[in-house]
Design a protein around this nucleic acid. Structure first.
Length: 108
DNA sequence: ATGTTGACATTGA
DNA sequence: TTCAATGCCAACA
């Protein structure tokens, strides 16, 4: 097979690509949707690999809503600026308000 | 080939 | 409640 990455990565990308505009999700929810709620770390690796792809990896945040992977983007500001551009709001801690923008796979 | 690190989350104390 | 330890899978040294 000509699969450079494992199916796990491909599934992660498939879920990330399904995140609606102006919404965000967490690594745990993605991992849980894949059937491995504890493999959230692998989701992070898939994100880093997807940082060079067309996937909206900026819509994936950690459980607190923090942009933990912003440093892996072309610039550490593109992630926040892009989310703001999509209508996503941040709190005083600089984290996404999951209460208003949390999107869960398999739910939609 | 072996051990450590990493864009996280869960569990136990 | 917070802090420490464990699990998961892939990439890197």
């Amino acid at each position: 097979m000509a699969e450079d990455r494992t199916d796990f990565f491909q599934r992660v990308w498939d879920v990330v690509a399904d995140i609606p505009h102006g919404k965000v999700t967490t690594y745990g929810h993605i991992a849980q949707h894949l059937g491995a709620k504890r493999s959230a770390r692998v989701v992070g690796w898939a994100m880093k690999a997807a940082a060079s792809t067309n996937l909206p990896c900026h819509r994936v945040v950690n459980r607190r809503g923090a942009l933990s992977g912003r440093l892996h983007f072309a610039t550490p500001t593109v992630m926040e600026e892009r989310l703001r551009s999509e209508g996503v709001a941040f709190n005083e801690e600089g984290e996404v308000i999951l209460d208003d923008h949390l999107w869960i796979p398999s739910e939609g």
